[in-house]
Design a binder for these strands. Structure first.
Lengths: 154, 154
DNA sequence: TCCTATCAGGACCCCAATAGTCCTGTTTGA
DNA sequence: TCAAACAGGACTATTGGGGTCCTGATAGGA
């Protein structure tokens, strides 16, 4: 279904939560267990997400006691495309787009060879244009957010 | 990786091939095995793809001896979004967007609840704007993409 | 009218990628 | 020196997709 991995979803949640926590507490560093509790996502999973985000440079890690994670840059400067790339790797809808030419065994008679990049570029542009700030539902308090009624769209 | 299923890729190939075949032969009905040979995609897989396309109304099936499939409407009126919807179901990046509200167990504290639809709409718009005609590589000679000997086998 | 070849439709199974967990090592502050 | 917290890896279970097979239906021919 053109699925996005759940890890990416979690990553967005964690990043926004991290942003809110920094503003609320003034404390720049927050731990993985703390974020896990705040978001409701299992702690090992949060740790895994944060590791990936740290590797991509979206967050900065501080090791040792009193360590934790902090945002590398404001959330409004982070696009959805950045998060997806950090968690899932480069955005590529089909193996044809990113992979080598040898990966597709029907390549020689593939009528659309080289054209998925058109679709790919369109999606990439769409995702780059949306920042994490856009993803945040600003009017509602973070914790215990009201579910249901919001999902009716489309 | 924001992966598109291979079936969708095959579907685009098959649809374009079907369009070419109809114009070339004048015969409106083409069989699944014939299209499989023409595209290089395994026959059962082509059959599966065609079934899904028929269910979505993109192609029309003709059962019985001398049966087969034909396009329900010209390929330039079919968007990539149509094909993806036919094969993979409704375009929904996350379970939050399409599914029921009960599917997400951290729903109550999900900071981005109801906002993936924004991303979803952007992608849907991008995909709707691309037709199968756009996906076709016009510059490559037909004979190279569709070997004459294979085409005659239908 | 019946038989048979042919093709669509549906069911099924296997594999691979992903999600999630756990363990050990390293680092740093108290 | 101890404890807290991240880093990195391996490991396992599960979901979904890819592919195959079988059954039912249809049309043409005898």
């Amino acid at each position: 279904m053109l699925r996005l991995s759940k890890l990416t979803d979690y990553a967005v949640v964690v990043l926004i939560r991290l942003s809110d926590a920094e503003r609320a507490s003034g404390d720049a560093v927050h731990t993985a267990p703390g974020l896990a509790v705040a978001t409701g996502v299992p702690e090992p999973t949060v740790a895994k997400v944060l590791k990936a985000l740290a590797g991509a440079g979206l967050v900065v890690s501080q090791r040792g006691a009193r360590g934790g994670y902090r945002l590398a840059r404001p959330v409004d400067e982070v696009s959805v495309a950045d998060v997806i790339t950090a968690i899932d790797g480069p955005i590529a809808l089909t193996a044809c787009v990113d992979g080598g030419t040898g990966s597709c065994d029907v390549e020689s008679m593939c009528a659309v060879k080289g054209r998925w990049d058109l679709v790919n570029d369109a999606i990439h542009a769409a995702l780059t244009g949306i920042s994490l700030t856009d993803m945040r539902v600003a009017s509602i308090p973070l914790v215990f957010r009201v579910p249901a009624s919001l999902s009716a769209a489309e």
